[in-house]
Write a protein that binds this DNA or RNA. Structure first.
Length: 909
RNA sequence: GGGCGGUUAGCUCAGUUGGUUAGAGCACAUGCUUGACAUGCAUGAGGCCACUGGUUCGAGUCCAGUACCGCCCACCA
């Protein structure tokens, strides 16, 4: 097939990236069994689990990184012939979506309340239908080869059914329960949130000390002269106080335990109790107990049978139990209470107090702990199974250090509050009858009757709450494959191979998928958890809209191309580590693509006339291959090995480093430059030039395949332009992954020696200040072992060092005689003289510059030599170090001694 | 209060199981319109590998500790 085609002169990604993506789509190669798939269906499928992005969010660099890493893995797997499944999706993100929509409708003068549940949800659907395409388009722009035929949404019917079914099963298995418990309440979002969504924030508050008067046992009234002082940062909570606690061993208070104190304003008499939880050295050593609004107090209260009195309304104002403060906002009430306490002489003091305040991850409001009747998932048994999975290695975490974090979290886990007092999400499938019975049902229309008393559905009311978004996200690996039905997809693609995401959602998402997957789908959801780091700004700060330091991936793509962005992100990543991102990194990627573009252009243009333009790709004839050809293929083979290893170890930055260096420094800088000589040598036989050209094509073909997972667009475009073999497919995306070729140690070493020589000569010329264009005679001595390679490369050396003529001598004596006055160049075992008599730019100072250069080289060599000798003089070294190491040191010493001798001789003479 | 990272060239980062006097890209200096590429080519300068001890023939690499930066977890009101 494919004849070579013309490439545009300049690399312009925007000209072809979109078109290439369309070609992939048209070829139907993304699906594991798509029409264009060349996968061996007998092979084990490779399945990526991706975090479905929030439907409301704009794509940021974190998404771009996730998409890129996953695409790298999936493309690599696809090229190795495995069926690959990477299922696209979107998350409904209930609290985040409501937060965004609330703001939007506020501008329209509406609110949740004014619209009501039904109209609000209609508005939400309209909103997300408008953002949906944007989100999906962004993934396409970056080149993600997702199987779009399987697009899923966490609010679609498949997910809804999985949610109903899974909750019903958890309830049946005693792992879901409803109870009144202390939850985290966000007054701004008007919902409870999980512990993970509460962000502890360092702030300076005030620690007030105030007096509760003791009840005089004789009169039953508070004593004006007896009191207990307590310290608090939240004076408004005294309205809900039902006790005072002291440490049992605190001698100051022993006598008071068992007595009663009067809470002001609400005029409630509460007991003074002894409890270990109290820290005697903090504050006054006595603590007010508010079981309805504080976690510690709640437990203390429970131990002592204290009542829990809720004093806050949903908007965090004081409710009807707040005596004269009812209706005041919590902070207004706080100020008023402090003022009133002071007025009655019961405020002892106030001082600034550094503390951690829990704020809502979404709205930043201060979270209030309060009692609510909610649904919880019992995490203990689920976490135990998840732990067993990682400990046994059924699922492994990359990088492994996160296993510790995982262990710690899983072993100290609290039950998971899954109720949310929001509207946008999956309604909890629980119905209540007037008699207080609970019926949980997976049926779409609800239960046929109350499970306990048989009351008809008309008498039942469904729980108004919805599930925490992460509940449906946690079902993702199997809810997207048809669960709870035992589908073919589920059998074939569950568990997934790699779950890739940022370490910041390991608890939110990864942990929940593990717990729910093991219990409900009866197997771990994935074999490997790959955690990437965060993309930070150039100063190491988190990117955020408010800081204004976000880089928009779409802008980056428009500016530099998707390949450049992908390269930049992958090049800077290593598992679990954050990366600082600066836009200059995009230039690296773009320049690299440009380099590859031009290298390909050169190869195409250098096709010998003896090869027809439409010739199918053929392997270079080994009999015609010279040292350059053998070296190029050897380096290509080394690249294949290194990339294979990088892919296997999920060290993707290693992959890009290998390819950047291999393509640029080896293939372009030396391979192409050396090949130019043979390609342009009319005296060579056609077959020799053909062998050189086919070598370049072979190497280029391999590099394009290796680079395709990271830079899919430019490689696809370039690959289309080079000759193909008969069994190649039309598109690189489904081409075979390269198999490692033969390494050639001799070629590597001998060509390496010539490279060293060329560099040394260029260095000498530059140091001497010789005009770059000047052609100068070069005389040299080459050891016999290198002779053959040298002779083959002599024309290339001539070209690369601008030598004219280049003369090889048999001995050093001959060299001395032929070129007594040239610049001395010592490159390993090769010694050369650059004749300067005819050089331009030569001045009187040249001899001294030349002496400086040689003196510097000598000093360096002497340093190395001294170190080598010192090591060898050490008996401990020669007797204890491995023989190979000692041998290496001896060889090095000999070589250095030779170099030093020659430099000394030259400087002396 | 526990735990985890990081500290290597001006900047961003590599440095595999310990083995030449430590590498790359960017930035910098100098010189090049060499017919693939100035998004480029060539050459060069630039490092007490945070600090202190230890193990070893040998430490950027292993161990212990210290300092600073960052992150995670945790019910001092």
């Amino acid at each position: 097939m494919a004849a070579t085609t013309e490439l545009a002169k300049a690399y312009r990604p925007a000209d072809f990236e979109g078109e290439i993506y369309e070609r992939w789509l048209a070829a139907d190669v993304f699906a594991p069994d798509g029409a264009g798939s060349r996968a061996d269906q007998a092979k084990e499928p490779f399945v990526i689990i991706q975090p479905p992005p929030n439907i409301t969010g704009a794509l940021h660099l974190g998404h771009a990184l996730t998409s890129t890493l996953e695409d790298v893995m999936i493309r690599h797997a696809r090229m190795t012939g495995r069926p690959t499944l990477w299922l696209p999706g979107l998350d409904h993100a209930s609290i985040a979506a409501q937060y965004v929509l609330d703001k939007i409708i506020a501008e329209e003068g509406e609110s949740r309340e004014s619209l009501g549940r039904e109209r609000y949800l209609e508005r939400m659907w309209r909103f997300i239908n408008s953002t949906r395409e944007v989100m999906l388009g962004q993934q396409r722009r970056i080149g993600a080869s997702l199987d779009w035929s399987r697009l899923r949404f966490t609010m679609d019917e498949g997910s809804a059914r999985a949610v109903r079914e899974s909750f019903t099963r958890l309830y049946r298995d005693g792992l879901a329960y409803r109870t009144e418990a202390l939850i985290n309440w966000c007054p701004g979002c008007r919902t409870s949130v999980s512990d993970l969504e509460v962000i502890p924030t360092e702030e300076t508050g005030t620690l007030w000390t105030l007096r509760y008067h003791l009840i005089d046992e004789a009169t039953g009234e508070p004593s004006p002269t007896e009191w207990i002082s307590v310290a608090t940062t939240r004076p408004e909570t005294i309205l809900g106080d039902t006790g005072v606690a002291v440490h049992p061993d605190d001698a100051r208070y022993t006598a008071l335990v068992g007595r009663t104190a009067r809470i002001p304003f609400v005029e409630r008499d509460v007991p003074i109790v002894a409890d270990e939880a109290v820290d005697p050295v903090f504050g006054t050593g006595a603590v007010k107990v508010t079981p309805a609004h504080d976690r510690t107090d709640n437990e203390t209260g429970r131990r002592h049978g204290l009542a829990a009195i809720t004093i806050l309304a949903d908007d965090a104002s004081i409710n009807e139990l707040g005596a004269g403060y009812t209706g005041l906002d919590r902070y207004a009430a706080r100020a008023a209470i402090v003022r009133d306490l002071d007025a009655r002489g019961d405020l002892e003091g106030a001082k600034p107090h550094p503390m951690l305040i829990g704020r809502c991850q979404r709205s930043n409001d201060v979270i209030e702990p309060r009692l609510k009747t909610q649904w919880f998932v019992r995490t203990g048994p689920l976490a135990a199974e998840a732990l067993e999975a990682t400990r046994s290695g059924r699922t492994s975490i990359v990088p492994p250090r996160f296993e510790k974090v995982w262990e710690h979290w899983m072993t100290s886990i609290h039950d998971w509050n899954v109720s949310r007092q929001l509207w946008w999400g999956h309604r909890i499938p629980a119905w209540y009858c007037p008699d207080g019975h609970v019926t949980v049902s997976a049926e779409v229309g609800g239960p046929a009757a109350c499970e306990a008393c048989g009351r008809p559905p008309g008498d039942l009311t469904q729980d108004p709450d919805i599930f925490d978004t992460w509940f449906s996200s946690g079902l993702w690996p199997f809810s997207t494959l048809g669960w709870p039905d035992e589908t073919d997809d589920l059998r074939r693609y569950y568990p997934g191979t790699v779950m890739e995401t940022g370490y910041d959602i390991i608890f939110f998402w990864v942990a929940r998928m593990m717990m729910l997957g093991i219990h409900l789908a009866e197997n771990v959801p994935f074999r490997t958890v790959y955690l990437h780091g965060l993309v930070k700004d150039p100063y190491g700060k988190r990117m955020s809209k408010t800081k204004g330091n976000v880089v928009d991936p779409l802008e980056a793509i428009a500016e530099s191309g998707a390949d450049a962005l992908r390269f930049a992100l992958v090049h800077g990543t290593s598992p679990g580590n954050d990366q600082k991102f600066r836009t200059e990194k995009l230039d690296d990627g773009r320049n690299f693509a440009n380099k590859l573009w031009n290298a390909t252009r050169f190869v195409l243009g250098a096709r010998p006339a003896s090869i027809p333009a439409d010739a199918p790709r053929q392997a270079p004839d080994p009999a015609r291959a010279g040292i350059t050809e053998r070296w190029i293929l050897s380096r290509t083979a080394a690249a294949v090995e290194a990339v294979d290893q990088g892919m296997a170890e999920l060290q993707f930055a290693e992959v890009t480093r290998t390819l950047y260096d291999g393509i640029w420094s080896e293939f372009c800088d030396w391979g192409l430059e050396l090949a130019k000589v043979r390609l342009g040598d009319a005296s060579l036989a056609d077959d020799d030039r053909a062998a050189t050209w086919w070598t370049l094509v072979e190497a280029l073909d391999t590099y394009l395949r290796l680079l395709h997972p990271v830079m899919p667009f430019v490689t696809e475009e370039l690959w289309a332009a080079i000759p193909h073999a008969a069994d190649d497919p039309d598109l690189l995306i489904v081409a075979d992954w390269p198999t490692p070729g033969r390494r050639d140690a001799t070629a590597d070493a001998e060509l390496g020696a010539i490279v060293e020589l060329v560099r040394a000569i260029r260095n000498a010329r530059a140091a001497a200040g010789i005009e770059a264009a000047a052609r100068l005679p070069i005389d040299l001595v080459v050891p016999d072992a290198l002779g053959e390679s040298y002779d083959a490369l002599a024309p290339a050396i001539e070209r690369l060092t601008r030598a004219r003529p280049l003369r090889r001598h048999r001995s050093h004596a001959e060299l001395e005689a032929a070129a007594p006055s040239g610049l001395a160049v010592i490159a390993g075992e090769i010694e050369a003289r650059v004749g300067i008599d005819a050089a331009g730019g030569v001045d009187e100072a040249l001899p001294s510059r030349e002496r400086d250069r040689l003196a510097k080289e000598l000093a360096e060599a002497e340093g190395f030599l001294a170190a080598a000798r010192a090591r060898l003089a050490n008996d401990a070294f020669t007797s204890k170090a491995p023989p190979a190491v000692v041998e290496g040191a001896r060889a090095r010493e000999a070589e250095l001694a030779e170099t030093v001798d020659r430099l000394r001789a030259r400087l002396a003479g």
